[in-house]
Design a protein around this nucleic acid. Structure first.
Length: 289
DNA sequence: AGCACA
């Protein structure tokens, strides 16, 4: 029962970037980066309808992605490579969220964070987008005609109901509860499927308890707060081993001091987003030069 | 509950 549970929603229901007809070629990718900063139309939230279950937690999303056909590039960053996901290109199963849309420099803007949760071993599901929130930027039209295969609940969940983000929302997630031996690569696999994912930073700290060992903290950078929020909600409580009830469950919050190292200083997108006060106040580069 | 990197 976190603070965020159900109290807000986020833009879901983007079109699947890989859907035919709007194939994100390298050329068209540029368009995505220029999505209008506007708010889009926030759908109303239906009260009581929680647990969107983007599937990250209840579908076999963990390992298949990791071992499947990732084309890894550098293996960790979200941006850059139009990888074919699960080896499938358009065949998307898995989460179907937009890894194919790894945007360099974080340009997702307010595109619906999720295209759609894939259903393993189901035919490809295209972006729901019944109502696409603020996605007019460059997807080349609305995502009509989806094929939801009659999964009504899924459709509802993905329709893209949005409320405002929590006040402390930021583009950086703080993730706790990773196993000690979790590698950066492994952590990145968890978040990469989410649109707007950029980077994972692992931090090894000593546990508070003296007898405790190390604890692994994780900071995940997203293109914007809404993308982060989507991942937060979807992965909250995510268990590494869902068969083992005692296994690690992720706890995700927004980072207290979102200090995105990126976007790079020359990234034009940088100006479009508000930054925390203390970030700007923070001394940079140690004094005079 | 636990928050680092530049």
């Amino acid at each position: 029962m976190g603070d965020y549970g159900g109290s807000w929603r986020y833009a879901g229901g983007g079109a699947d970037p890989r859907r035919p007809g709007s194939t994100p070629t390298k050329r068209s990718r540029r368009e995505y980066e220029d999505g209008p900063p506007g708010r889009g139309t926030y759908g109303t939230t239906r009260a009581g309808d929680r647990d969107i279950g983007y599937g990250a937690r209840d579908r076999g999303y963990d390992d298949r992605g990791a071992r499947g056909g990732w084309r890894d590039g550098d293996g960790l960053a979200g941006g850059g490579d139009l990888m074919s996901y699960g080896g499938g290109g358009l065949g998307g199963n898995d989460l179907g969220m937009g890894p194919g849309l790894g945007l360099p420099g974080g340009g997702v803007g307010n595109m619906g964070p999720l295209s759609l949760v894939g259903i393993p071993d189901e035919p490809p599901i295209l972006g729901p987008g019944g109502r696409m929130v603020g996605l007019d930027g460059g997807m080349g039209g609305r995502a009509g005609g989806l094929n939801l295969n009659g999964v009504a609940a899924e459709a509802d969940a993905l329709r893209g109901n949005v409320d405002v983000l929590p006040p402390d929302a930021s583009s950086t997630l703080f993730v706790d509860g990773l196993p000690q031996d979790c590698s950066r690569r492994e952590a990145a696999h968890i978040f990469r499927p989410f649109i707007g994912f950029k980077e994972v930073r692992l931090v090894h700290k000593d546990a508070k308890r003296v007898n405790g060992g190390k604890v692994v903290l994780c900071f995940v950078e997203f293109a914007d707060a809404r993308c982060a929020a989507t991942a937060l909600e979807a992965l909250q409580g995510y268990k590494f081993d869902e068969t083992d009830h005692d296994s690690y469950a992720l706890r995700l919050t927004f980072a207290r001091h979102p200090g995105p190292r990126g976007p790079a200083r020359d990234d034009p997108y940088r100006g479009g987003r508000e930054r925390g006060d203390d970030y700007n106040q923070r001394p940079r580069g140690g004094g005079r030069r």
